[in-house]
């Protein structure tokens, strides 16, 4: 799985301060730590940066490239900043992101073509959050694919992102999101790549629950066709699940459970939890989380207790 390391993000107070103070060392260390943990891309989220966007992005790209040749994912809605950053990248970069609105597609798709970059395209239009798998696929087919063709961007260079919503309040949206992933992979030949903001699923959940939700959601999405995730490479347990799925490591009960989730979703089914030994508290928590993600058990911040 292609990991897009999410840690260099303007929402982090430390990152924001480092950008303001032009603190190269902080950014470089965060870049190196993520690369060492196996990130394939380093996301550089500088926010909209209405003033001085190009300068900030150029500084970020140069700063990170001084210490690593890991590919960069440039994450801003500011078109000028995006272009300035793309022009500096030494390794094929990733445009993060466009959505399915004509304005954003017109701004970002030509840049992906001009700089031979990959691009993330969210199946989201101005008319509110997508409500079904079909609505997401429709946006991809009717807005994103034509814009790619028009600009000469190959479908195989596009990462389609179904837009993961928070489980708290959108529990019935989890399965349609997974379903959209399946359809994306059938859309074209060669198929598009797929990605998602894995951490979105747990936004607003208590901090101790968030990594568990990510770990269980990942094999579901992977089974359905997820090629890549914007996630936290510094989360060792999450990276362990990535490794378990890739090496098919069935040496532990936990590993077997993650593999069985993956296999069920790859076969177009939901997880089979009938034979899991739930006297093991760790497995029990994973099973509870499967049930919550499959909308069979109502999510509450204390769902592990019930």
């Amino acid at each position: 799985m292609i990991v897009i390391g999410e840690c260099i993000h303007i929402v982090s107070k430390q990152v924001k301060t480092a950008i303001e103070n032009k603190d190269k060392r902080f950014i470089q260390e965060l870049a190196l730590r993520q690369a060492e943990k196996g990130a394939n891309y380093l996301d550089l989220n500088i926010g909209p940066q209405r003033r001085g966007g190009p300068e900030v992005m150029t500084w970020m790209v140069d700063t990170v490239q001084e210490v690593t040749d890991t590919s960069l994912s440039l994450d801003t809605t500011n078109r000028e900043a995006m272009e300035a950053g793309l022009a500096r990248c030494k390794v094929r970069p990733l445009v993060n992101s466009t959505d399915a609105t004509p304005e954003r597609l017109a701004a970002m798709m030509p840049l992906a073509a001009k700089y031979n970059a990959n691009i993330i395209a969210l199946t989201l239009a101005g008319s509110g959050l997508p409500s079904s798998a079909d609505a997401r696929v429709q946006l991809a087919l009717e807005a994103i694919v034509p814009a790619a063709l028009e600009n000469g961007v190959n479908m195989a260079d596009i990462f389609l992102d179904p837009l993961v919503l928070t489980i708290n309040g959108n529990q019935d949206q989890v399965q349609p999101t997974i379903e959209a992933m399946r359809f994306f992979k059938l859309m074209s030949d060669p198929p598009p790549l797929t990605t998602c903001g894995l951490s979105n699923i747990s936004s607003g959940a208590p901090p101790h629950l968030r990594p568990l939700l990510h770990r269980v959601f990942l094999p579901m999405m992977r089974g359905a066709g997820l090629d890549s995730a914007i996630c936290d490479p510094l989360d060792d347990e999450l990276m362990a699940v990535r490794r378990i799925l890739e090496t098919r490591d069935a040496s532990t009960a936990k590993g077997r459970l993650y593999l069985s989730i993956y296999d069920s979703y790859a076969a177009g089914q939901t997880a089979d939890i009938s034979s899991v030994d739930t006297s093991d508290p760790e497995l029990r928590d994973i099973v509870k989380t499967i049930e919550v993600l499959e909308n069979k058990w109502i999510y509450a911040h204390s769902y592990l207790q019930t």
Partner: peptide
């Protein structure tokens, strides 16, 4: 009118 919160409040009260 919020299902997740409805369940959570019941849990908190029982706690």
């Amino acid at each position: 009118v919020e299902i997740n919160l409805a369940k959570q409040l019941n849990i908190l009260i029982c706690d």
